[in-house]
């Protein structure tokens, strides 16, 4: 697993005449979990797609270890594991084939594929489901397979876009345990969510996105200290301000 520092610098994203992201800058240190929090429509998914190298930004840069990602976007993509809101696993293949195909597409050697496959099967309890098509899995297991797929190609930054959306509380808790584990593996994780309470104890760093701008960038403790309040109250206040 590589250890990398990702820097998002002055990102602007415009769709037509609407600015979705305005001068967004933050960093994702190595082996850390960063929470990207914001209300619906604040630009979280767009930003995570830009960080993943999937979508272009209107201006700004994404740096990996000080070098622009756009100079060799294919090399940059090798370091990323994108797990979108709707797990886009290929339903024509079994879970096993989805995992193996991913590693093969990313150019991982056969020897490493076998090692990684055994590791992710154990880590995510996938043994029983390997020959299932993803469509037959529950939402929680689809998310697990999606994260496992990212680990198959040894991504150093896993991007989880609203990973617990539509999941029951138990499944959500077990998914957060999985995320905690990723850090111990040496990965950095970028989580976008609007469940502040759930990620409070999990993240090393918090970025709050409001109306396409970074409202806060720092640790949870710094935020509490600055605003002299708990996370839920801060978030609710932000929501009220956005509604106004």
């Amino acid at each position: 697993m590589n250890s990398n520092l990702y820097q998002i610098q002055n990102i602007f994203k415009r769709y037509g005449k609407k600015d979705i992201l305005k001068d967004v800058s933050f960093s994702i240190p190595e082996k850390s979990i960063v929470g990207l929090v914001g209300l619906n429509g604040s630009g979280k998914t767009t930003l995570s797609s830009i960080v993943s190298g999937l979508k272009p930004c209107t201006s700004g840069d994404v740096l990996l270890n000080g070098k622009t990602a756009y100079k060799n976007i294919d090399e940059y993509k090798r370091t990323i594991g994108l797990c979108p809101q709707r797990t886009n696993l290929d339903n024509r293949f079994t879970v096993r084939e989805n995992l193996i195909n991913d590693a093969v597409f990313f150019g991982i050697s056969d020897e490493r594929i076998n090692i990684n496959l055994k590791k992710v099967i154990k880590k995510f309890n996938l043994e029983k489901y390997l020959d299932f098509k993803p469509a037959a899995l529950s939402g929680g297991y689809k998310q697990r397979v999606s994260i496992a797929r990212a680990l198959m190609h040894e991504a150093s930054l896993i991007i989880l876009d609203e990973p617990t959306l539509g999941l029951d509380p138990n499944t959500r808790k077990s998914l957060w345990d999985v995320v905690k584990n990723l850090k111990e593996e040496g990965c950095s994780v970028l989580i976008t969510t609007h469940y502040m309470d759930e990620i409070e104890g999990l993240i090393d760093k918090l970025c709050i996105l409001s109306k396409g701008k970074i409202f806060f960038d720092g640790t949870v403790d710094e935020l509490k200290k600055n605003k002299n309040s708990d996370l839920d109250k801060i978030f609710n206040k932000l929501a009220e301000e956005e509604c106004e």
Binding site: L54, K77, R78, L82, P84, R86, N88, N91, F105
Partner: peptide, 14 residues
């Protein structure tokens, strides 16, 4: 729907 095509665009290939 599933947007599997976006997964393919996230691969390190042109």
């Amino acid at each position: 729907g599933e947007k599997i095509i976006l997964y393919y665009f996230s691969l390190p290939i042109k």
